[in-house]
Write a protein that binds this DNA or RNA. Sequence first.
DNA 1: AACAATAGTGTACATTCGTTCACCAATATA
DNA 2: TATATTGGTGAACGAATGTACACTATTGTT
Lengths: 211, 211
Amino acid sequence: MTRDEKKQQTRKSLMDSALLLVGEGENFSNISLREVAKNAGVVPTAFYRHFKDMEELGLNLVDELGMMLRKLMRSARQSQLPAVELARNSVELYVRYVADHRTLFLFMSQCRTGGTPALRSGIRNELGFFATELATDIRQASSLPRIDTQDLEIISQLIITAVADTTIDILDQPENSLQLQELIEKTIKQLRVIFLGATLWESARKSSKTN
Amino acid sequence: MTRDEKKQQTRKSLMDSALLLVGEGENFSNISLREVAKNAGVVPTAFYRHFKDMEELGLNLVDELGMMLRKLMRSARQSQLPAVELARNSVELYVRYVADHRTLFLFMSQCRTGGTPALRSGIRNELGFFATELATDIRQASSLPRIDTQDLEIISQLIITAVADTTIDILDQPENSLQLQELIEKTIKQLRVIFLGATLWESARKSSKTN
DNA sequence: AACAATAGTGTACATTCGTTCACCAATATA
DNA sequence: TATATTGGTGAACGAATGTACACTATTGTT
C-alpha cells in the first residue's frame, strides 16, 4: 500500500472514530483529541499529522455530510419522477437515509445549533445549498408561476427546516417503532400544509394583513 | 438576610454564572462546574450545596426558560387582541424577547439538539407545551372548523419549529442590523405560508396524493 | 444560653486533557 | 543504492477538572 493511501486510511479512521463516539452519546464538542486517537488505534500526537485540532476534523465531517446530502438529493430526483405522493416519498427517503447514517446526522443535529461558529455556519451552508437545490427542483416539477424565485427559496428553507428539525426526534426513536411511524406521518402532514400554502401563495400581492 | 434567602441568592448566582458563560460563547455542555463556581464568586465545592452536577443546574435553567416562554405567550395574548398582522406581531414580539434574554435563548438553541438526553427532552417538553397553548389560541381566535384538534396541534408544532429554528440565526445577527430585518421578513413569510395552508386544510379528506 | 444544622471554605488527589519534543521506521526520491 | 521525507511512536509537561474530606462561621432551634 502506498504511503498516501495509508495516510488517507488513518485519516478516515480518525473521522470514523469521532463519529463512533458521537454515536455512543457523546457531544461532539466534548470529544477529546485523545479519545479519537485512542479509538482509531493511533497515538495522540499522530492526530496532528492530519488535523490541526478537533474543529478542523469537524469541518471535514461537514464536508462528508454535504456529500451525503447531495447523494440524498440525487436519490430523491431519481425515485420521484412521477411526482405522486411527493411528501410521503421524500420524508420516507429521508428517514431511511437518517437510519443509514445515524452518526453523521447526529453530528449534524448537534452542531447545527450547538457547535462552534465555524461548524454552525458550515452546516448552515450545506443545508442552505440543499434548500436552493430543492427550490430549483420545485420550480421545474410543479407549476407555481405566482411565486417568485426569492419566495420559493424561502419556502424551500421552511421545508428543509421542518424536516431537519425532526431529525433529532427520528434518531431518538427506535427503528420501526410506532412512535417513529407517527413522527413520519406528522412530518408528512406538515409538508403538505406548506405545499398547500405554497400553491395559494402570490408573491405579487401586498400580503394579507389579517394573519 | 435569612439563611434561606442567602442560599437562594447564591443559587441564582450559579445559574446566572452558567448563562453568562454561555453568552460568552461557551457551549453549555463544555462549561465546567469550577468555572461556574469561580464566576459566581464561590468555591467549587460549594456548588454541591445546590446542584448534584451541571446537568441538574441545566434542568433548572430549562424551568427558567419555561417560565419565560409562558410570559412571552401571555404578552402575545394581550398585545394581539385585534388579530391583524398576526404573523408580523408574533415574530417581532419573539425577536424582542430573544434580544432581551439572549443567553437563555442561546442555552435553548444549544441544548435543544445538542444537549444531554435529559436536557433535550426537557426543552422539547417546554416547546411542546408552548405549541399546545398556541393551538388552543388559534382555535379560539380564528375559525378553522375543518381542522381537527390533532392536526391543529401538528400545525402549531410546525409554527413553533419554524420560529425556534431561526432563533440561533437571530442571535448570530447584531441587533438592528439589515440581516436581522431580512430574517424577520423571511420568518413572517414562512408563517404566512403555513397560515395560508392551514386555512385550506381539511382534516377529513383522504389527503391529496399528488403532493 | 447552649446546641444543632448548614452554607461556604481550603486542601488534596487522581484523571484527563492539549501540546512539546526527540526519535524511529518505512516509503519515496534521486 | 544512498538520501530525504514523513506518518507514527513514546515520554513528559503544565493545566484543568470532578470529587472527597475535614473544617469554620453563621443562622436557626431548643
